[in-house]
Computed example of a mutant assay.
Amino acid sequence: MKDQQLREQTPSCAGCGVTLQTENAEKPGFLPETSLQRDPVICQRCFRIKHYNEASSVALDQDDFLRLLGSIGTTNSLVVHIVDLYDFEGSLISGLQRFVGNNPVLLVVNKIDLLPKGMNVNRIRNWVQRAAKAQGLRTVDVIMCSAKRNKGFEHVIEALEQHRGDRDIYVVGATNVGKSTLINRLIRDYSNMERELTTSRYPGTTLDAVYIPLDDGKSIIDTPGIVYSSRMTEVVPRSFLGSLLPDKPIKPLVYQLNEQQTLFIGSLARFDFVEGERQSFTLYISNALHVHRTKLERADELYEEHKGELLGAPSRDELASIPEWTRHSLRVKPGEKQDVFIAGLGWIQVNGLRGALIDVYAPKGVKVLLRDSMI
Rank of each mutant, 00 (worst) to 15 (best):
T10Y: 15
S94F: 07
L283R: 01
G173I: 07
L115M: 15
V128D: 02
E154Y: 01
S286Y: 06
N53L: 12
S243K: 15
L257V: 04
V100L: 06
Q97S: 12
N53T: 09
R293P: 02
T175C: 15
D168L: 03
D189A: 12
Q44D: 14
R270A: 10
K179N: 07
C43H: 03
V291L: 15
K133F: 10
L96N: 00
E304R: 13
E336I: 00
A25Q: 12
L137D: 00
D87V: 10
G344M: 04
V105C: 05
C145M: 15
L107D: 02
G365N: 11
I342S: 02
G178S: 09
E259P: 00
V254I: 15
P334W: 00
I285S: 03
L289C: 09
S146L: 05
E318T: 05
Q279C: 04
K295F: 12
S229T: 12
K148P: 01
L20A: 05
D317T: 12
V142E: 05
K2I: 15
E304G: 07
Q62E: 15
V105E: 03
V121G: 01
L106E: 02
N102I: 01
Q260N: 15
E336T: 12
V235K: 07
V121A: 05
S91C: 11
P224I: 10
I265C: 09
P203K: 04
E305R: 15
G178C: 09
A299N: 03
L106F: 07
N258V: 04
T34P: 00
F153T: 14
D39Y: 08
H290F: 10
G266M: 06
S191W: 04
T139V: 15
K307Q: 13
G242Q: 13
Q97H: 09
R138W: 02
T326K: 11
H292L: 14
S315V: 11
T282F: 00
A131K: 13
R38E: 15
A25K: 14
Q62N: 11
R238V: 00
Q62G: 00
K337G: 13
L60A: 12
F99V: 03
N24K: 11
R185Q: 14
D84V: 09
N122H: 10
L345Q: 05
D339F: 01
L78K: 04
D87M: 07
K111Y: 06
G70K: 05
C13P: 02
L369N: 09
V105G: 03
V227P: 00
D372C: 00
L345W: 07
S239F: 01
Q261C: 02
V340H: 00
L107Y: 06
T294G: 09
A132I: 08
G355M: 08
I226F: 11
K27F: 07
E33L: 14
V171M: 12
L106P: 01
L357N: 12
S191H: 07
Q135C: 11
I375Y: 12
